[in-house]
Write a protein that binds this DNA or RNA. Structure first.
Lengths: 204, 204, 204, 204
DNA sequence: AATGAATGAGATTTCATTCAT
DNA sequence: CATGAATGAAATCTCATTCAT
């Protein structure tokens, strides 16, 4: 029988593509899009530079692929969220968001490095997703208000605030300033966040 | 052998430095650090590329200078904040923050484009400032709790949330997705943010 | 482990070679030698790139083969030409030359694109043929002079002029500036050319 | 006073441009456009590769510049030609054409190597010139016919034949197969060509 | 014999940096 | 001090050729 696939040769086309995307995501995350070189991406993927061009037309296309082909499970999670204004549902939602965030760290780091200055990618993909999340949140909040569970606030503003809260966590983690809390502590964090959001900070 | 200052070209060393920094900040903001060329910076500053090297050792040094020499009036503003848990003081603080944010948009955009992937600059300067702001906020919140104006929350968490809320506004403005609200509307926004923070969203 | 010839893929070695040469001639004609890629040649031939190397050592060898293995029916035609100084024979010859020229357009275009700068191929093959044609023409003209049908002119010069006349037609057709005249008009053109050559343009 | 400019530094912008064009013309003529490398052009011009890009946007632009900025004194010569059907005028014209041809050999060789497969350049510039020459010749011939000096021939056909005659000389010289005749012999050649054209080859 | 994915040398082009003026 | 032409290292991308299957 054959020996275990040890070299780059033994990969299907789909696998090779993924292999390149994964290597690129890592390098982009480390160096940023501009500083990342095709040579380094190839090296990290264990293939020759030219090989990349069998799967992607150019460097930019790799970035697009990363952006477009990476799933956003956060959206799926939001869609499934039930229980209007239910504290437990919200806590679980936030906790799930933290888990997803951790899984997507390299992806997010890539985004922030280059997409930031590339309007075409931003407009096409990222903005779209952010808007989607924003709208889902807004709708949920509006529904809670209609149901009398939340008081009369501006749903758009609250949605943005919630995303900002999340963003601050992501940014820190991406930048390595502070790691995301360990899985065990995430429930506590999620509860604190939800309580803050629900009841504010004013003493009563 | 000529000596009489004949044109507006005559500048003191300090002025010339500033002139370069301002031009660079604009170009960095538009193109990102990597895509910005020394030629364009020089062009925008109205001088020759070679001249830049009389004032800065290399391109990176210009970025460092921008980061390090740009003031952060937000810190000063925080230090002056009085009135523990006073709604009006908080509203005014937030409003002032929005004004400062607008004034610093190009600077912030520069940061996000490159500093993001440059640990040396980040660690040295940016993180320092962010921590400073964070600590000031945290201290203020802790004081409010001690004074019995805020209920017993985690000051660090609240500080981070507040910064995240702000961040979400800044990010949108930097990216041009949505402009900052006009000065007239800022007070209303600030009030909504403060009320949200103080009382939460739960109906009562 | 399959073996039964199942498709039209089965070709004898000679046929496969020809198949490649034909595909290459077309691609060379369209793109020029340098711009033509092995992949495109393979694609046009309906085979894989690697297969080409079973029949040719490298790209250049394909070009050589095209040049060397393509017949020059013009030479055969010249050899058969009879009737010293006979207008009809000359007209028919020229007409035949036009037909052959049309049939060889892709081949000629290939030559002009690359052989032009490749002395080895030029010297080996092309120059040889041109000289051959030149000499046949020269000999014919000399014979006509000896027979008293042509006046005393320099046979070499006339041969070159005749080839130049032809060349001007070929070049235009190759370059697509003006198509070769339609078969019906070719006789008229051939007659005009022959009359021009025989009697010149001076009014008498 | 200063020593004679020995290095590449001592050139005005216009001279540097010309210097690059001349080097490129030589390399293009030797290798053809595709095979010519920027590195070699730079080497031949005695400058660094990057310097070329201070004067030309890309490789193709160099070719265009050669094509467009090279004069065609042949047109000027044709315009000045007097004496309808006058043998001496025609002889002188042809002789001048041979001189010009020699002076433009590298330029012409460049054209043939690449322009051949580049329709954009061909259409824009070359075809234009060829047509111009063709029309001037045609007009001249038509005038001679009208004046009764030439018999009733197709002016377009004769123009094309004349250009073909010339072309055959040029091609040989460009390819190095046979040099152009020495200046002393050019008058004899020109006379032979004119006589051939005027009186044909038929014995009388 | 045939395949076609992989290779990697080499080409074009960019741009931070230098230095003679 | 200031200039800006020149540099040349380095990046992206192409494609003839190889070779395991």
């Amino acid at each position: 029988m054959n020996d275990t696939p040890s070299s780059a040769t033994e990969k299907s086309a789909a696998t090779r593509r993924t292999q390149i995307l994964e290597a690129a995501a890592v390098v982009f995350a480390e160096k940023g899009y501009q500083r990342a070189t095709m040579k380094e991406i190839a090296g990290r993927a264990g293939i020759a530079p030219g090989t990349i061009y069998l799967y992607f037309g150019n460097k930019r296309e790799i970035l697009s692929a990363i952006v477009n082909e990476t799933e956003t499970p956060i959206v799926a999670a939001l869609l499934e969220m039930g229980g209007l204004g239910d504290r437990d549902a919200m806590v679980e939602m936030i906790e799930k968001g933290l888990d997803i965030t951790e899984a997507q760290l390299p992806f997010n780091r890539t985004l922030f490095s280059e997409v930031w200055v590339d309007d075409s990618i931003l407009e096409e993909s990222i903005a779209e997703r952010i808007k989607q999340i924003h709208q889902l949140l807004e709708k949920y909040i509006a529904a809670c208000i209609a149901a009398g569970v939340f008081r009369l606030v501006d749903p758009a503003l609250v949605a943005q605030m919630v995303m900002g809260m999340f963003g601050s966590l992501i940014v820190q983690a991406i930048r390595g300033i502070a790691p995301l809390p360990s899985p065990e502590k995430r429930r506590a964090l999620a509860e604190a966040m939800v309580d803050l959001l629900l009841d504010g900070i004013r003493a009563r």
